[in-house]
Design a binder for these strands. Structure first.
Length: 418
RNA sequence: GUGGGUGUAGCUCAGUUGGCAGAGCACUAGGUUGUGGUCCUGGUUGUCGCGGGUUCGACCCCCGUCACUCACCCCA
């Protein structure tokens, strides 16, 4: 038996890094006023199809979709934004307070071919802001990401930003783009030809060399923004600059979900091969309305949790596990019973204590204490019980003292509460 | 979905024209009867990914399959 393809266990040896990232992220989110939201793992297929876009790769071939016993079409969530928007609308949150900031952490599912940093069940740390159109929100989110990575000790990441325009300026741009592409048609790969009617914007980030050459001088959304979009983007850039956030304007950054408008960005790394995006986000001012809510500007990002952890592993940022305070060695049945009660009591008092019930030799148990990185060992054998003098050994200094059973617990508390 | 690489002990890996499956680490027991990390000695661990085929004989050659991995595609 083994996990199915693209799915994996995250074992205890690795988990401390995940916990550290999650702790830092949620701490930072809270200080910016975000509230946690938890959403279902399964939604109606229609929700994703409508929000992400019928002709995107995600919806066309990557979703885990199935029918339940009643024949309803359901899908394992491939991303979080759609569900959060659904929730915002369903609970009429706009009525009580249109400005909402959410974060969530959890698994997403896409049926792609697995490779480095890409799994079929992968985890995202997601943040969304509803109800604010200001460009400062855009730069604030990018600043937040930047802060998080800084706190995690990561360097060598770069923020790529672009503006995709809005319903005002995009149609005219698409026309200009299509005209240009039409003239280069014979140089483009099959996929790009397919994209011409599907989603011409995507041609801009084709990675095939011929296509890249062909579109090297293609018109960019950036050069065809309407005044509002242009102002918006300028404000984003300026706000980032004044906060000292480095960024690269990347005209070819075109994100694969249909709902994005205006600002789109990706945080990229060079250390994960082709899976360079560690986080990505964008503004989606039309989606809330599209899904049946009132016109509400919104923006959000997702961090690839798995990828972030892998980047951190590469630079050796694994936090030390908590050492064990005390390991109890009980030799003989009477001592075992005593030891059992001591361990219960000490753990109740907040002292990390372990005891081994296998009845092994002193030597074997000392080895185990060492393996568990115990700071102290309590040795209770027949002699110690008779003489009422339990041995406490400091594993670093090798110093040993005797404690009477009455004084022992208070004495230990004194040692460990320092 | 397409293409390349790799599957041998818990881990990292050796394995000769096709001739009895190995090392290091880990685990475990000892090193005179109750003291860890180092050292020494012994011990345990295998469907050689799985299924076919060729052969007197296959870890080795052939076919299929599954998994991992890298790249394309796409994205977090």
């Amino acid at each position: 038996m083994q996990t199915i393809r693209g799915f994996r266990d995250i074992l205890p040896e690795k988990i401390s890094l995940w916990q550290k990232v999650e702790k830092e992220a949620t701490h930072l989110f809270k200080s910016f006023g975000f509230k946690e939201i938890r959403i279902p793992i399964i939604e109606k297929t229609q929700l994703f199809a409508r929000s992400i876009g019928e002709v995107t790769d995600i919806v066309e071939k990557e979703m885990y979709t199935f029918e339940d016993r009643k024949g309803d079409k359901l899908t394992l969530r491939p991303e979080a934004t759609a569900s959060i928007v659904r929730s915002y609308i369903q609970h009429k949150m706009y009525a009580t307070d249109p400005i909402r900031k959410f974060y969530m952490v959890g698994p997403m599912f896409r049926r792609e071919r697995p490779q480095k940093g890409r799994y079929r069940q992968f985890y995202q740390i997601d943040a969304e802001i509803f109800g604010v159109e200001s460009a400062y929100v855009d730069s604030q989110l990018i600043f937040l990401l930047n802060q998080l990575f800084k706190r995690l000790g990561l360097t060598g990441l770069s923020a790529h930003i672009n503006s995709l325009g809005c319903p005002e300026c995009r149609p005219s741009f698409q026309k200009v783009l299509l005209d240009f592409i039409e003239s280069k048609k014979d140089m483009l790969c099959e996929n790009c030809l397919r994209r011409m009617d599907k989603n011409p914007l995507r041609i801009l980030d084709c990675k095939i060399e011929n296509c890249r050459n062909a579109i090297a001088h293609a018109p960019a959304t950036l050069d065809h923004l309407c005044n509002e979009c242009s102002d918006h983007f300028n404000t984003v850039k300026k706000a980032l600059e004044t906060q000292g956030v480095d960024f690269i304007v990347d005209k070819s950054l075109v994100r694969g979900l249909d709902y994005y408008t205006r600002t789109a960005w990706e945080i990229q790394t060079t250390t994960l091969g082709a899976q360079s995006a560690v986080a990505g986000g964008g503004r989606y001012d039309g989606l809330v309305k599209e899904l049946g809510g009132p016109q509400t500007p919104a923006i959000g990002f997702a961090i690839g949790f798995d990828r972030l952890v892998e980047v951190m592993e590469q630079i050796d940022k694994i936090p030390e596990p908590l050492p064990l305070d005390l390991f109890i060695i009980s030799l003989g049945d009477t001592a075992m019973e005593k030891g059992y009660h001591w361990s219960c009591e000490l753990n109740q008092k907040g002292i990390r204590t372990e005891i081994d019930f296998r009845g092994k030799s002193l030597k074997a148990l000392m080895k185990r204490a060492d393996k568990l990185a115990a700071r102290y060992v309590l040795i209770a054998g027949e002699n110690e019980l008779i003489e009422n003098a339990i041995i406490l050994r400091n594993m670093n200094t090798k110093e040993q003292v005797s404690l009477s059973m009455e004084d022992m617990i208070p004495e230990l508390i004194k040692i460990f509460k320092k």
